[in-house]
Structure formats: structure tokens, C-alpha cells
Design a protein around this nucleic acid. Sequence first.
DNA 1: ATATTTTAGGCAATCGATTGCAATTGTAAA
DNA 2: TTTACAATTGCAATCGATTGCCTAAAATAT
Lengths: 341, 341
Amino acid sequence: MKRQKRTTIYDIAEKLNLAASSVSRALSNSDKINAETKALVLKTAAEMNYQQNAMASNLRKGSNPTIGVVVPRINQYFFSNIIAGLEEVTFNKGYNLVICQSNESHEREVEVVNTLINQNVSGIVISIAAETGSSDHLQQVLDRNIQLIQFDRVVEELETFKVLNDNYKASYAAVTHLIEQGYRRIALLEGPQELHIFRERKEGYIAALKAHGFPVLEELMYANAWTQELGAQATYKLLEMASPPDAIFASTSDFAALGVLEVATGKGIRIPEALGICGYSNEPFTEITSPSITTIDQFSIEMGKTIGNLHFQELVNSGMVIKKTVNIRPKLIVRKSSQRV
Amino acid sequence: MKRQKRTTIYDIAEKLNLAASSVSRALSNSDKINAETKALVLKTAAEMNYQQNAMASNLRKGSNPTIGVVVPRINQYFFSNIIAGLEEVTFNKGYNLVICQSNESHEREVEVVNTLINQNVSGIVISIAAETGSSDHLQQVLDRNIQLIQFDRVVEELETFKVLNDNYKASYAAVTHLIEQGYRRIALLEGPQELHIFRERKEGYIAALKAHGFPVLEELMYANAWTQELGAQATYKLLEMASPPDAIFASTSDFAALGVLEVATGKGIRIPEALGICGYSNEPFTEITSPSITTIDQFSIEMGKTIGNLHFQELVNSGMVIKKTVNIRPKLIVRKSSQRV
DNA sequence: ATATTTTAGGCAATCGATTGCAATTGTAAA
DNA sequence: TTTACAATTGCAATCGATTGCCTAAAATAT
């Protein structure tokens, strides 16, 4: 395997008896170059198999058409969809995506953010890890004048663009739906309250209960039930109460809802007749469980695209952006697990 | 927002009355620098909030510790898992991942590969698009001496590292299992035969039938049924035959298997008693359908890690690599949809 | 025919970090 | 005391592309 050296603009210049600057101008489609010369350069470049050295170019230009993405885990449906949507927008603009996982660890998140700063990326898109910590690393990003866009899980105090789901409204809608279906004791599975998204969902739940004249009962709010396993455990406890709930809103995720479904089915409880279930996220599987699970769609691909458009400043005057924030209205998807009317 | 200029090694050098080269040596932990000086530089760099400019460094060093990843779609469980596994290995080595989607389009694939070449990435990891075309773009990668690793769907003629599932054996095992469960007319849902993975699965199916003395019937092999929709259509057709199959092996994907399940259930056919079903990929949902679906696990996260280790040459002498190829043995996961013994 | 403006292309500095080689200082051996 | 050598540090070129400034030639205006 011979290490054939890369063709540079100097090689092309030499061959054509031109200055490198002219070659550069021809390749970058400048107007300070004769049309014939330009054509000749282009042709020769193709023949010589020239590929621009992006690092040299970026160094000189002081910019790097790359966007860094930091998510807790890329193999979660929601996040991989965000990335898919984002990539569609960025690729068409000639931008690349550098993807990093924080694995829900704050320390790792700091590390990857620093790596991205090193790369001189033009923007960073992040959904913060559940493990809380300072937001100094994000402040660093801002100090360096790198565009920062937060989505889904955000540090609220930081003045950056944010793309959010309206968790409050979605949660309110879900609980209202359950009430309309005649459920009277609606339990809530909560996520870690350090994350605002889970706080908002809880608030929506409480507000909906109050709005319909229902009591808000501590005993029906189950903390930290945000995995399938924890959702299942919570369900065991809840169903053993003297007067158990007749519906469970797994505000944390569809996985938690799945845990509920499995435990309830295992106990021979009929769904939706004896117990209503609602999840969150519209994971693909919610459609095919039996019964199918009512849930909330977050329009993740759309969110990804929105983030991309925000980066390129294409939404600033659209009216969608209020206080640097775009709120995407999630949609309640009613399925069999909560339909008894 | 003030544009505060980035601190460079020159800024540090000036402040400490040193040469930039010394600062560079201190920061890169060279041994050609006094320990005290090194400590001082490190301290000052931290104070001045220095972050290395990766582009300058990479340009000078002529290398970029980045690996480009090209997959058809990143929001597919298999691929996002591959990436997750790969990222784990690469991040620990200080390497970044640049992720691109081909969207199953050959043209797009060529485009993104060129972008990656521009970036001077040290390696490219790819699973080719279903849309076939020339492999010139991959040859280019090799010509430029960029490490190329193909996985899952590969161009066989190209002499590169390959990480594959042993599709033949997995398929053989699945069909053998169905035979052992007493199924006698086993249909096959095939994928596009341009992709070797689907050819191999078909071969495994045929071989297993022959090995057990079963006839190989054209009428039971259904071409191009590789989505949920197409799987459903195929099932309609197959079940309307004069003597319909008593088992369907959706060798293309679990999604196709799901299509089979839905159609069969809709027709009131009992599974697994009257019809056995086996899918491929071990998508999370196969565990929670009713009945749960027998499938094949591809160890996607492991595959991702293997790819990473291959890139860093850490498997070359392990005996796992034969003819530049690592074969990962998938595992049959037997669930209810095929268990009637 | 002369003056002025355009156009095309060259020169050289620049982006920031790295590195081979030279220079300096200090230390040990002769 | 002189020589030899090692340890530090500085100097300057380099990676490849871009761009401000300058010049020569061509085109246009006077």
C-alpha cells in the first residue's frame, strides 16, 4: 500500500503554472478569477483527484462548519430521532455533526463539551445528563461565542436557545383525558425532580386534577419511577393499597408504562376497564402491546429539524421563538389502555 | 456579547516570557521540558482558560483523531446501538465520531464519504446503503490510506476489515428450530437479494431445509418483504394459498415479523399453534408483543465495540480476525411465537 | 492618444500548533 | 581549568488554504 501524498492546491498551481491563490479562488468560486482559468483549474483538480483539506481551510477561516451534539444516550429512540432530524437540516447546509454521549454522567458531559470546544465547532446542541452538576461547562461555550442550543432537558437559568416540549400541557391533557374516561383515582409515576421536565409534568398532573375538582393525594404520587423496572415496582406498591388507583399515568416514559402494564396484566387486572394506563414518548412499541398504550408524541424528528433551523437562524422572525425558546406542543395519542368510554 | 479572542499558546508564551514551542512542549507533556516550567505553563494555561485549537494541531500533525461513521439511518435500533458501542471505545481513546446518514441512497453515501475524506478522518466505518451503485467512493478511501471498516452490509470484493454477523448460521439455526418444533411448511420472507446479508439468510434457510430432508419450494419464498407493510402483504398472500405455510421466517427484520403477527392475529390464526413466527434483529418490541416473537440477536453493541477495537488494531492477533473479517455469531432467542412443544 | 477603470493574477502574511535543529546553560568528567 | 555532554529553551519552518494588497495588462472613457 503506497502512501500517495494528497494533492494540494500547490500541486495544481505548479502543474498549471499558476499561483496557489488563483487555484484557491477558482475552487472557491470567487469572482476574482477568469472563467476559463476557473474551468481549467476545476478540470485539473478533478483529474488530480484533489480533495480539499478541511482542517487547513477551517483553521485559516477560523470556523468549522460542524455542530456538536451531546445527548445522554444515542440509542434511545427519542434522541436518535432528534439527531436524524437535525442531520437532515445540517447536511443540506454542508455542516457535519459530531455526536457524543454523556451516558447520563455529568463528568463525562463536561469532558465531551470541552472536546467540542477544542474542535472549534460552530454550535453545540445539548440535552443535559440527569446527573446534576454545575453548568460552568455550558457557560464556557457561551463565553467562547459558540452557539449553544439546549433541548428537552435544559439548564433553565442559562440564556440560550431552547427547544422544549410543553410538558405541562401534555401532562395536563393526559390527565384530563383520563378523567374524561371516568377514572377517579389517578396515580402519577414521577421522574427525578431535579430535571425540570419531570417537575413540569407533575405540575400539569396536579393542575388538571385541581381544575376538575379532584383532590391531590400524596399517596398517589410515586417518586422516581422512571424505568421499566421501577415502574413495575411502583405498580406493585400502588395496587396493594387499601384503595388502589384506577389509573396510572407513567409521566416518566413509556418504559415505565410498560412496567405497569406487565404487573397489572400479571395480577389479572383488566385494562382499560379496571385500570387505565398512559405513558409518555410514543415509543414504537406502545402501538403493539396489548392493549396498546395511550401515550404522548413528542415529534422528535420535527424537534431535530427545529434545532437545525434555529442554528441557522432561520426561525428568529417566525414568531415561533419566544424568549429564545421554541415550545413544541406534544400530542396525546389515545389508545386502548385508557379508553373505556 | 463581546467576542473575546481565544487564548493561544502565543498568549501564554508572552505572559511567561517563553517561546511558543516551550509552551507547546509543556502542554503536550513532552520530556524535553523542565518540570517546573511545565507546571507553570499548565497552571497559567488553566488560568487563562486555554483550550487547544484542534484544527491547527491536526493540520500540523497531518492527522485527525476522528472516525467517520456512515449508516443508512441512525434512528434504527441496530445502527444506533452500533454507534453507542463504537463511541464507548473511541471516546476513551480520545477519538471523536462524525456521524452521517446515507438514507439508503447511494448518491448521498458518495457525498458523505467525500466529506469525510475532506476532514482527513483517520478512519471510516460504513454499512452500505441498500441502493446499489459502484464502490468507487470506497476505493477512494483506501487510495487515500484511510482505514476503512465495513460492517453488516458490505461490499464483499473490497479488501477491507469487515465485521459481520454470520447470517447463514443464524438463519440455519432459526429454521432448524422451527423444524424441531414440528413445523412442516416453513415460508421465508426475503430481503433485496443485492445485499449479501439477505442472500446468506436465504442460503441458510435452504440449507437447513435440505439438511432435514424438506423440499425447497419456490412458492414459499416471498421476495422483497422487508418492511412491516410488505411483511403484512406477503402474509396475506401466503395464507391464502391452497396449502398455506405453518410457519413464517421473516428473515428480513422483526418489523416484517410484526406485520406477519398482525395479519395472522387479525385472521384469527392462533400463534404459535397454527402458525410459527420468527423474526430477525431482536428489536426491543419483540419481547412484549403477544405472543412474544422468536428472533435473532445480533449483539449490536458488541459489534460496535469490535469495530472500535479493530480500528485501533487491538484485535489483529486475537484469532478473531480471519481474512480481515470478524464474524459475530448471532444468537437465536426463542420466544412464544414459535414454541409449541 | 492619453487617462482612468476593470480584471486577472501574484505575493506574502496569516490561522495556531508542532518539531528539527541550533543555542545556551549547567554539570560532570578529564 | 578545560572539555564533553546533557538538559532546556529558542528559532524558524511547516502543515494547506485563504485573503488583503499590489501590479500588470486589458478595456473603457475622455
